[in-house]
């Protein structure tokens, strides 16, 4: 398969572009001699580029896992109440135990995200089986309801600013060295998903098939929910909500190379990073030197891709 090397080459090119573009006009080629250029590179440009790549890759992998778990192509971690639940968890721990250390908050956010996603799974299990399109609708409405609760609590407790930071369109302009490292946790979770890729692929074939092959569907489901929840929680606390990456990237990759997750997860990860980095670069360039949040760009680009996926001719031969 030549797809992976080609995609990685594109990603490398975009990364170089990302390192050279920014409000401060410095040449990265000078970095070895010019301490100011080195500072900009190491403290701002490099962390930002890494943050975008990690986020894009982790979200896309979380999306592919989620789609295997619920056996539906039209969902992503941002349309199932996961992000909103993580926000609710963060909010709860911030209000109840304001002094708790960062890792406690992260654990709380991840657990809440997992509960919220489990709630979504419980809801869609009660939908009529054949109604493929009802699943994303239920997810979007559930996200809306949980988001409304979070917004309201945030507003009552004067924490609305934080809630908006987590749930409004995500952006990377605030990323500096020391302020993005949680994303590595998300990347590790995504790596874990690759490790268990076969299990998710088998669960995607149905509970009966999974049981017949000696897997416990419940255990695989919990592992998958944990991956999705951790990725989402880390991303929203670090950069905010990034829409559509986890939704459209797995679709595009599945269309090209199918759902053998062991082979496709690396491609999904690289494609996710490419999509997000491209959108981030567009956001940085279109109104230079101002920035448009990558979440806004993706809201437009992702929605258009999604509508195309919805109305394209099905792949049936």
């Amino acid at each position: 398969m030549r797809l992976l090397p080609a995609a990685m080459l594109v990603l490398a090119g975009l990364s170089v572009a990302s390192l050279t573009i920014g409000a401060a006009s410095v040449s990265i080629l000078e970095a070895t001699r010019d301490p100011w250029a080195a500072l900009v590179l190491m403290e701002s440009r490099l962390p930002r580029t890494l943050a975008v790549i990690l986020t894009g890759a982790a979200l896309a992998v979380a999306g592919v896992v989620l789609q295997a778990l619920v056996r539906n192509r039209f969902v992503g971690p941002e349309t199932t109440g996961t992000a909103e639940s993580a926000t609710l968890g963060l909010l709860a721990v911030t209000i109840l135990f304001p002094a708790s250390p960062l890792w406690v908050k992260m654990v709380a956010a991840s657990l809440a995200a997992m509960l919220g996603t489990a709630l979504f799974v419980a809801v869609i299990r009660r939908l009529p089986m054949r109604e493929v399109m009802l699943v994303p609708i239920a997810g979007l409405v559930l996200s809306g309801v949980i988001g409304a609760i979070a917004t309201f609590i945030g507003w009552q407790t004067d924490l609305l600013q934080y809630v908006n930071g987590w749930l409004m369109s995500g952006e990377f302009s605030g990323v500096l060295a020391g302020r993005y490292e949680l994303l590595w946790v998300a990347a590790v979770a995504a790596g874990l998903a690759w490790f268990a890729a076969d299990r998710f692929a088998i669960l995607g074939l149905g509970d009966s098939v999974a049981t017949g092959l000696g897997l416990s569907p419940g255990a695989v489901m919990r592992l998958g929910l944990a991956v999705v929840a951790v990725v989402t929680a880390m991303v929203i606390t670090t950069v905010g909500l990034i829409p559509f990456v986890g939704l459209v990237v797995p679709n595009i990759v599945a269309r090209i190379m199918g759902d053998n997750l062991r082979a496709s997860i690396p491609v999904v990860a690289v494609f996710g990073a490419v999509l997000l980095l491209t959108c981030d670069l567009i956001g940085r360039l279109i109104r230079f030197p101002y920035e448009i949040p990558v979440g806004t760009i993706l809201g437009v680009v992702g929605a258009v891709i999604f509508l195309w996926l919805l109305y394209r001719r099905p792949a049936h031969g």
């Binding site: 076969d198 692929a201 995607g204 074939l205 009966s208 199918g258």
Partner: peptide, 24 residues
């Protein structure tokens, strides 16, 4: 065990699907 099949959402090649029979 082979249960009654419902349409599945996964996009797998036949060789990959049959290959999962060896997974245990």
């Amino acid at each position: 065990v082979l249960g009654q099949q419902t349409a599945i959402a996964s996009r797998l090649r036949l060789r990959e699907l049959v290959g999962f029979g060896r997974w245990p």
